[in-house]
Design a protein around this nucleic acid. Structure first.
Lengths: 222, 222
DNA sequence: CTCAATTTGTAACACTTGTTACATTTTTAA
DNA sequence: TTAAAAATGTAACAAGTGTTACAAATTGAG
């Protein structure tokens, strides 16, 4: 099991022997959860770092009509609920539920602080995780603040193009999935793609998107 | 000056003598900026913690047409650009510009790490700042994902009501400012307030908002 | 290959919000 | 107190997106 734990980002750079040593001198729990079991409840104070060693969990919000909305899946090896651990108001905004049988390493924040102090690398790992999470959320925020579907779509195409370093993008999604991802309806998305095609900004050969006019595309993201 | 620095959140709990001691053993710079001077450029890697000791700065984005969009003001004593300091991709997304003559304490992240290791309280302060920032951004995200003006407004009224623990809210803003804050236009905001009034959800005596039907209000935020 | 299921294209219409404009009320400064 | 400035109420219209519906094209399992 220590080798599994050494795969998680918070223990990056440690081998299983080192993980074993660290955990021997750090108060912690390891809990196993069954599928659908609730790991932590929305509203609860969250004073523990959760390290998902094995399995998969999800966060889900419950709206006014008791309808469940899935927010995010997390797969081992990873951590979750780590970014607001030291906030003044550290209440969970979502329920944490096991998708599959899951093994979770739980470290209280006070013990974590001690660990930070005795082990510089763990601290650096933690800071790295939290900072990366922050960058992600900030990007999401920037994306959400785009007002039109065209702007969102253009921004998305530019991101994909940057990643693949290619003017021709392969969309690994159906229109329906892409529409969901962008938070818009499928017919509206189709209409927007058509408009961009008509304006000579992109071509759509099959399941691909070819960027014809990068400047126009960029201008749309304002 | 040390007493000013001791007012900043990263040095919370230290008096000026202690701050003086800490800074004696920590590599740092103190720089002064004139109004409109650019402190850091968008795109630059950001490897320093900025502690705003005196004055006021702003973040501003520049769009494709070189139009400047103000993002956020920060007033001393506070820190900024701290949350993504340890991210893999730690490039600034905005320019940092001085509003007024400002004094800034600059600590490189390597020196900061050393400081964390030698001083537990500083580390805790930093973790607290970053976590709180994360909670703020997450709330903003949740807010932005609300689709209608009514939902945003309802959510805002509920927040204010929770804070003041009172069904009657004092809006310290003009409609124009509130509209800006919500990212909508002023006439649309006025129209929405009128609708909520007509539906018997709120009353608007003068500059106040009185919540009449809390349940209906809450239902609007879905 | 073939047929059913899925995905995509498209159109008509409704709803929400932005735009512009102007009248009215309130606030502020002289 | 009074005139100018700022804030607010409101209306007509435009733009963007959602909703619903259905046909055409594509995909996939047998």
């Amino acid at each position: 099991m220590y080798s599994q734990i050494s795969e998680t980002p918070i223990f990056k750079g440690f081998n299983s022997d080192e993980v074993s040593d660290i955990l021997k001198s750090t108060h912690h729990q390891i809990k196993t959860y069954e599928p659908k079991e609730i790991i932590a409840f929305s509203g609860e104070e969250c004073n523990n770092l959760f390290v998902l060693v094995e399995g998969s969990i999800r966060g889900e919000a419950i709206d006014y009509n008791d309808k469940i909305i899935k927010i995010e899946d997390v797969f081992a090896p990873d951590t979750f609920a780590e970014a607001f651990l030291f906030a003044d108001q550290n209440n969970l905004l979502i329920n944490i539920v096991a998708n599959t049988k899951s093994k979770i390493l739980i470290i209280h924040k006070d013990d974590l602080l001690r660990l930070f102090h005795s082990n510089k690398k763990i601290l650096e790992n933690y800071l790295n995780i939290v900072s990366n999470r922050f960058v992600l959320v900030t990007k999401k925020l920037k994306f959400l603040s785009l007002k039109t579907i065209k702007a969102k779509l253009a921004s998305h195409f530019i991101e994909l193009s940057k990643k693949s370093k290619n003017k021709t993008i392969f969309l690994g999604k159906t229109q329906m999935e892409l529409a969901d991802y962008l938070g818009v309806t499928r017919p509206s998305l189709a209409r927007t793609i058509k408009e961009m095609k008509d304006e000579g900004i992109i071509e759509v050969p099959g399941k691909m998107i070819r960027i014809i006019d990068y400047n126009k595309l960029k201008k749309l993201t304002e």
